[in-house]
Amino acid sequence: MADRDPDVIKQEIDAARDQLAATVDSLAIRANPQRLADDIKAGIMNFVKKPAVAASLAGLGLVTVVLVIRKARS
């Protein structure tokens, strides 16, 4: 085993510890359930706001209202 300076080894260990702590913090932020839910919600809202999707949903809503009214009248 090569003779290594203990101070250099300590610095390397400290740097590795800091890097590991940063990685763990990053993973904790990415796995936060509230953040995941917010990201999913934002993605859905962006999808629904597209003109084609909005028009399709409006048409589906209109058909549903017409069917409910017809069912209530008969």
Score class of each variant (00 low, 15 high):
Ile9Leu: 05
Asp18Arg: 13
Ile40His: 08
Pro33Ile: 14
Asp18Asn: 13
Ile40Met: 10
Ile40Asp: 09
Lys49Ala: 11
Lys41Ser: 13
Ala58Ile: 06
Ala21Tyr: 06
Leu20His: 14
Lys49Arg: 11
Ala31Trp: 05
Ala22Ile: 05
Arg17Gly: 00
Lys50Asp: 04
Thr64Pro: 02
Val66Gly: 00
Lys50Phe: 03
Leu67Arg: 04
Pro51Tyr: 09
Phe47Asn: 06
Ile44Cys: 07
Ala37Gln: 15
Lys49Val: 04
Leu20Phe: 15
Asp7Leu: 11
Asp38Glu: 12
Asn46Met: 05
Ala28Cys: 15
Val8Asn: 03
Ala72Leu: 10
Pro51Thr: 11
Met1Cys: 12
Arg73Ile: 12
Asp5Val: 03
Arg35Glu: 13
Asp38Ser: 07
Pro6Cys: 01
Asn46Lys: 09
Ala72Arg: 08
Pro33Asp: 13
Val53Ala: 00
Pro51Val: 10
Val66Ser: 00
Ala16Tyr: 04
Gly59Tyr: 07
Val63Trp: 04
Ala58Ser: 09
Ala15His: 03
Leu36Gln: 05
Ala28His: 15
Val66Lys: 01
Ala58Gln: 09
Arg17Pro: 01
Met1Leu: 12
Ala28Gly: 15
Leu67His: 03
Leu62Val: 12
Glu12Gln: 09
Arg73Ala: 11
Ala72Val: 07
Ile29Leu: 10
Val68Asp: 00
Asp5Gln: 06
Ala37Gly: 13
Gln34Val: 15
Ile29Asp: 11
Gln11Thr: 03
Pro6Thr: 01
Leu62Ser: 14
Asp25Tyr: 14
Ala22Ser: 07
Leu62Cys: 11
Ala52Asn: 09
Leu27Lys: 13
Ile44Met: 08
Val66Tyr: 02
Lys50Thr: 03
Met1Gly: 12
Arg4Met: 15
Arg70Thr: 02
Ala16Lys: 06
Gln19Phe: 02
Asp3Tyr: 15
Asp14Thr: 09
Asp25Trp: 15
Asp7Trp: 07
Ala15Val: 01
Leu60Glu: 08
Asp3Ser: 14
Ile69Val: 09
Arg73Asn: 08
Leu27Tyr: 13
Val48Lys: 04
Gln34Thr: 14
Leu57His: 03
Ala21Leu: 10
Ala21Thr: 07
Ser74Leu: 11
Val65Leu: 10
Asp18Ala: 14
Asp18Phe: 09
Ile13Thr: 12
Val53Gln: 00
Ala16Val: 05
Asp18Ile: 10
Phe47Ser: 06
Val48Leu: 07
Lys41Trp: 10
Ala28Leu: 14
Ile69Glu: 04
Ala58Tyr: 04
Ala52Met: 07
Asp38Cys: 03
Phe47Ala: 10
Val66Asp: 01
Lys41Arg: 13
Asn46Ile: 02
Met45Glu: 12
Ile44Pro: 04
Asp18Tyr: 08
Leu20Trp: 14
Ala72Pro: 00
Lys50Trp: 03
Gly59Val: 05
Asp38Lys: 06
Val68Ser: 02
Asp7Asn: 12
Ala28Ile: 15
Gly61Leu: 05
Met1Ile: 10
